[in-house]
Design a protein around this nucleic acid. Structure first.
Lengths: 206, 206
DNA sequence: GTCTATACATGGATAGAC
DNA sequence: GTCTATCCATGTATAGAC
């Protein structure tokens, strides 16, 4: 609110924010490799070089830390290969998938927490429910738009196809984590080609 | 070895086997709703009406119990809608998916443990690695067979398609668990139709 | 802000009586 | 086979000194 744009005070505030960032980074790694339930605050604290209690000074509870980690995940996932220029739906997704192969930690975190999300009393459940709902809507809207351009193959249901894109992506990540030989991007591309007509196949002119 | 076929002794052995079964059943439920790491032996013991230490008499460690649960999962998953008569690859899969909607516990267990499987030092990791490898081989073989029958659509790569079938299935289960409105079987059918020509479309005669 | 000390619960697993 | 008692490790979280 006040003066976020003018970082006049370089004092404790800046340091505190940095601390928080490094804590979230550490928690990200811990949760990715051990899960939320399996990871401990002590693990996180050790990586930051802080005592477990000091860590709780920044994040009052483990749950709060998870929320922060999930937010960071969103931020990192948005940092895709392409900036904001809307190129092509299919191209964007495939490039994103290819790009993700370079950041296995992100995929690991996602897959682990997503599996845990279906358990009872899980703090991150709502996050995944909302995420899935949002992705389905977004992709569905994209597909409807493609249909209007005559690029959606006949008989394809946008809603179901949107669910399937998300599903295929999530599922292929699981396989890839357990066997890196699986070609995530290729699988995704094959599927997208089966429901979408390539852009250069129906242009106005060539 | 000795006389398994002749259940002469109805004594302690039969009872012990029954106990083991009920313990595995309870563990199945506990791991399904809380995960392996989140579930406790005490939870399991309480459901069976046994002390936690008595439970360890049957399964020396929590890890052993997980193995037993995973084996039970295989057994239950094999108990599909169709017996053993090989009808049609696509039909079999879709009916299996539809059937699974009636046993959410099985799906929940699978999804949770599968997510945990990508964490470090997880006892069930090998199980899932092997399972994925086997499914990919099986499906791939089926698709190659279909190709020989001229029922595989042109341009479809059997290996990748096999991976994708498994991936789509796993992923759609996750979504379904978090939102029952998602139509698992329909998504699977759509995808299969996009790579396989329906059986009644290329028969010898009609 | 950072720490030590500690509370308090829960976890898996063992020893040994019955 | 089943239990109680117990061990020992680990977990999250709090209190309070510095």
């Amino acid at each position: 609110m006040s003066n976020v744009d003018t970082p006049r005070r370089r004092g404790p505030y800046a340091k505190s924010a940095e601390r928080r960032r490094s804590i979230v980074d550490a928690a990200f790694e811990v949760f990715a490799s051990r899960g939320y339930r399996g990871g401990s605050l002590q693990d996180v604290a050790d990586r930051v070089g802080l005592s477990q209690t000091s860590l709780l000074h920044y994040f009052p509870s483990k749950r709060d830390l998870l929320v922060a980690v999930l937010n960071k995940r969103d931020a990192e996932a948005d940092t895709g290969p392409i900036g904001q220029g809307h190129v092509d739906f299919e191209t964007t997704l495939v490039e994103q998938a290819r790009y993700n192969e370079g950041i296995p930690g992100l995929i690991e975190l996602y897959s682990v927490l997503c599996g845990e999300a279906v358990t009872t009393d899980y703090p991150g459940r709502d996050y995944f429910v909302a995420r899935f709902a949002r992705l389905r809507e977004e992709y569905s809207a994209e597909l409807i738009q493609l249909r209007e351009q005559g690029r959606l193959r006949p008989g394809v249901d946008p809603e179901r196809a949107a669910s399937s894109i998300v599903a295929l992506w999530d599922g292929i990540q699981l396989q890839w984590l357990l066997d890196p030989n699986v070609d995530m991007a290729a699988c995704l591309k094959d599927f997208l080609d089966s429901i979408i007509v390539p852009a250069d196949a129906t242009p106005t002119a060539s």
